[in-house]
Design a binder for these strands. Structure first.
Lengths: 227, 227
DNA sequence: ACCTGAACACCGTTCAAGT
DNA sequence: ACCTGAACACCGTTCAAGT
């Protein structure tokens, strides 16, 4: 009977690269990337680890594929809306996708070969800026700043010693454990902001995003600056 | 004789957490973080892997320590200079430190417990801004943007499919391999910029940094804006 | 107090063998 | 064409034993 069940499971969904990537992503989301092994992944898919190698070159190739899937989840800039709205939406969408899959940003560092979804995304963003009349140079500047800020903010957010939920723990971390006055400005920041009810570090993201968009707008159309 | 050599090597430098972290960093710099193992590290230090556990709680603790050493390499903002120069210098210094140790930025994602050098650094940056008259809120905004941009830019730079050296390879990657017109804007960018002699993506960093510093300055002293 | 050898429970990956 | 079992060369970490 076990055999029949196995066979049915197999017929229900044949092993494909696509299915492997989805399963790997959901394992990484749940348990963290460092505990993702080919053996556990095989087990989740009802298959021996070695079967995965028929659809994936090796683990590095699989990790490349996973990162590319995450990039595919980022909204492409919509057509026909102004560049500022398009860039704002895509930055927010990128932060959401990277937050859903926190391991992705740590993996980017070692990924040298971008996948098709990643390339398509970059191409669409550059296209949106060029269509809006940005020079090649200014489009490169703008993309570089926006991308850098978006990734970096998300990375910082993940690194934060406090998650938004446990405010009491913040107090614990910052105020106790150290000699009082060791880190006075961090302490001040914690008391004044992080410990206030309703505090959410994520809110900081749009402040910085708008400051950067202001700067880009100024560089793009200096004539209309400070209108 | 081998015994005598071993014993001398041992007397020359006793095993300490400090020495272990330095050796681990230099191995990671040379061979990449994914090939850093306790066994190889022990071998480099002329010791069995298990000896390391007398000075380091476990591998995660060691990785925490390595990241903190990298943070310690970032210049603290100097006293007595204006905030803008101080912030500019520290951003440039941070990018340099993270470029020297490319694995560090990929490791940050999973580090929940910042070390003393990291905390001291954050405290000094906030202190510099507060001394310059920034409100707690604006100091938080400013730090969040500058930090995010600095990490994110460095991460993007590491991820780039082309390293500055091999311009011919860029052409290969972007132009060949894909159907022509698949990624037209990436192709345009490659031809117009990346393939030009003397191109260096790193130059982009200061453009964005100054744009952000302009924005912060405007928020800090709106009276003197666009002076 | 520090170092070690053997051992345990894992890894990624290969390869020949099965269907 | 796809899956598997056994095997290889690794891992991080523990623990009792040495000095």
């Amino acid at each position: 009977m076990a055999t029949i069940a196995r066979r049915e499971a197999k017929r229900r969904a044949a092993l494909t690269r696509e299915r492997i990537l989805r399963a790997a992503i959901s394992l990484a989301d749940r348990d963290g990337i460092e505990s993702l092994s080919m053996r556990k992944l095989g087990h989740k898919l009802g298959v021996e680890a070695m079967s995965l190698y028929n659809h994936v070159r090796n683990k590095v190739d699989m990790l490349d594929g996973m990162v590319d899937v995450v990039f595919g989840e980022i909204d492409l800039p919509a057509n026909g809306i102004d560049w500022r709205t398009a860039m704002r939406q895509r930055a927010i969408s990128a932060r959401q996708a990277l937050s859903r899959h926190p391991w992705a940003i740590g993996l980017m560092e070692s990924r040298a070969t971008p996948g098709p979804a990643t390339l398509r995304h970059h191409d669409a963003v550059l296209g949106s800026l060029r269509t809006a009349g940005f020079s090649v140079d200014l489009a490169a500047h703008a993309y570089s700043i926006l991308d850098g800020y978006t990734y970096g903010f998300t990375l910082t957010e993940l690194t934060l010693p406090f998650r938004n939920s446990e405010i009491a723990e913040v107090a614990g971390n910052i105020m106790e454990g150290f000699r009082p006055g060791d880190y006075p400005h961090l302490a001040e920041m914690a008391v004044d902001r992080a410990m206030k009810p309703g505090y959410n570090y994520g809110d900081e993201f749009e402040y910085g995003l708008d400051l950067i968009l202001d700067g880009i707008e100024r560089a793009h159309s200096p004539a209309r600056r400070m209108q």
